[in-house]
């Protein structure tokens, strides 16, 4: 009796195992549908700077891959990434779009350095907190395209002359002098100057730069003030500078499209190998580029060139 039950159990178990084996061996003709839509891109892709909201709600400079070559098409592609939900698949990790999601680009034209872009009225739905940032993001992103200097923003055919919520005046024609991530440190009405300083920030070990437009009382050349600001660093813990506090800018020379900066030995991170940190080179070069109309920034030590940055190649 017990022997019969045992044999029965073995037979049932064997049958189940055999059936399972058969299922594994029989080919399955069902094709799995891809869960993601594939996007085919041209083999020629450009990496272009874009200014997006970072995890600290500041506008950070990062790069995105753009297929188009013509300026107006590049501008459109970049703006669509700035529109919430439209360009989500192209957003670098840690960054958010800022233009309200229902916004449509009605038209965009480019001529002689000027981009005119007409948005639908949904642009005006931006929050009070972000109304200045959205203008800064649009202006800095579009003027980051080589050949673009000025922007005019329209809403349903009318030039935008006031911020959407606060009604603060906007210049009709916008350029980088509008500022970004502004910081006012003015204590007197004498010798007021403004300039951009690019600080380093990080998200999950990926570095990017955050430009801050500073308004200060200082009569020195902007390049001297920029170097001083980078030496001191920022009070904001999320913004870093790798420029050694003992670095001295000994000389500045201007020549056509180039600015040459001579530093003391503290410009090097490694004096033996005479290496300058990429983070130092980029921060200084990006900051200089916004204040001076130059194509190259040369770094010198004791009358010898140690590095040359080509502005349009900076990442």
């Amino acid at each position: 009796m017990i022997k019969r039950r045992f044999i029965k159990k073995v037979l049932v178990t064997s049958a189940v195992l055999f059936a399972f084996l058969l299922m594994c061996l029989i080919p399955n003709n069902n094709v799995l549908e891809p869960t993601q839509q594939l996007e085919y891109v041209s083999s020629e892709v450009n990496k272009i700077p874009i200014y997006l909201l970072d995890s600290h709600n500041m506008l950070g400079r990062t790069n995105v891959a753009i297929n188009s070559k013509e300026i107006d098409k590049q501008a459109r592609e970049l703006l669509e990434i700035l529109i919430k939900e439209k360009g989500d698949n192209k957003l670098p990790s840690g960054f958010k779009a800022i233009i309200p999601s229902e916004t449509v680009i009605n038209s965009l034209t480019y001529k002689d350095g000027l981009i005119k872009v007409d948005f639908s009225s949904s642009l005006l739905d931006v929050s009070t907190e972000n109304e200045t940032k959205v203008i800064e993001a649009i202006v800095y992103t579009l003027t980051g395209i080589e050949g673009v200097n000025k922007i005019i923003i329209y809403v349903d055919g009318n030039i935008l002359t006031k911020l959407p919520k606060s009604k603060i005046n906007l210049p009709s024609t916008l350029d980088r002098s509008y500022g970004i991530n502004r910081d006012y440190s003015i204590t007197s009405y004498h010798d007021i100057t403004s300039f951009n300083v690019y600080y380093l920030s990080k998200y999950n070990d990926v570095e990017y730069y955050v430009p801050v437009t500073k308004y200060v009382n200082d009569s020195r050349d902007k390049v001297e003030i920029i170097v001083e600001e980078l030496k001191q660093g920022s009070y904001d813990n999320n913004l870093m500078s790798y420029l050694n506090y003992q670095t001295e800018l000994e000389k500045v020379d201007y020549d056509k499209n180039e600015i040459a900066l001579t530093f003391n030995e503290y410009i090097f991170s490694d004096a033996d190998n005479r290496e300058v940190l990429d983070e130092v080179i980029s921060a200084i070069s990006l900051s200089i580029a916004d204040s001076y109309n130059v194509e190259e920034v040369v770094f010198n030590y004791k009358n010898e060139e140690i590095h040359k940055s080509v502005i349009k190649m900076l990442e």
């Binding site: 603060i168 003015i186 009405y189 007021i192």
Partner: peptide, 17 residues
């Protein structure tokens, strides 16, 4: 003060540097 006025005017876009 005049300095505060200048700051506010810069923020309001009434003045530019």
């Amino acid at each position: 003060g005049r300095a505060s006025a200048v700051v506010e005017l810069l923020k309001l876009g009434e003045l530019s540097i």
